[in-house]
Amino acid sequence: MSPRVVFPNKLLPYLLLAPQVAITLVFFYWPASQALYQSVLREDPFGLNSAFVGLANFRRVLSQPSYIDSVQTTAIFSVATALLAMVVALLLAVMVDKIIKGRGFYRTLMIWPYAVAPAIAGMLWLFMFNPTMGTFAYMLRSAGYSWDPLLNGPQAMTLVIAAAAWKQISYNFLFFVAGLQAIPKTLIEAAAIDGAGETKRFWTIIFPLLAPTTFFLLVINTTYAFFDTFGIIHAVTGGGPGKATETLVYKVYNDGFVNLNFGDSAAQSVILMVIVIALTAFQFRYVERKVHYG
């Protein structure tokens, strides 16, 4: 074994760590603690006075019917986005794995959407499906489908889910491609000799061996759907029509920055944090058990 490398200078390691620690402090711990602090205060709309109110904000938020609706909306949106993004990415990855010529080219093409900013992605989808000028909207209508996401809630939901999933597909795709490449080819050949057809091979060999990747992506995609989709929703529907696409993150923004109800908004973001922490803990506790690590 090689001896441990020790920094001769006692200060240097701390200096090297400092930027990362500073970023985490400024952009995570500080806002998080602010949210916690705000969530127990009541502030007047002009921001002049604030008073300690204990858990009153939480009580009020949780008793609002609109909040419970938003939880439901978020659940539908997140599950659908994560599932769609992962299923499509897996499908594409499996297909690219079979291509021999020009594989690199396809892979590069697939990765591009990830470089598109959420708001831009949202605008793209908005334009494509805009009832008055969108190409796809036109195609849908000429196919006899009455398409108007600006008025129809479920259609608006479908649109944001598609846009949010589309952006995440590239990321998932990359991981699935890497995961597929890590499966030894002889295993697939052995299964073929053992009489398993292509579908059977996928479900009995490839899918179980991809489980570590799939699990990792499940955690990442859930978090993505909960938090990082704000930009897309903001650009495509603004939470509407009505409140049909108002997810929890969007509601935090809407109540806090549009309606200037900081106390409620802060309480909501704390609840949101708790939900995501609980969800992730659940995934690690119960789902990961089924994962076989090579």
């Binding site: 002889t186 295993l187 050949e189 052995a190 000799i193 398993a196 061996l209 076989h292």
Partner: peptide, 20 residues
Amino acid sequence: KGPAERDIAMVFQNYALYPH
């Protein structure tokens, strides 16, 4: 014919056992 229809069995150098 495909490998399955040939009714042969193969032993690989790296064994190719299904790890899961």
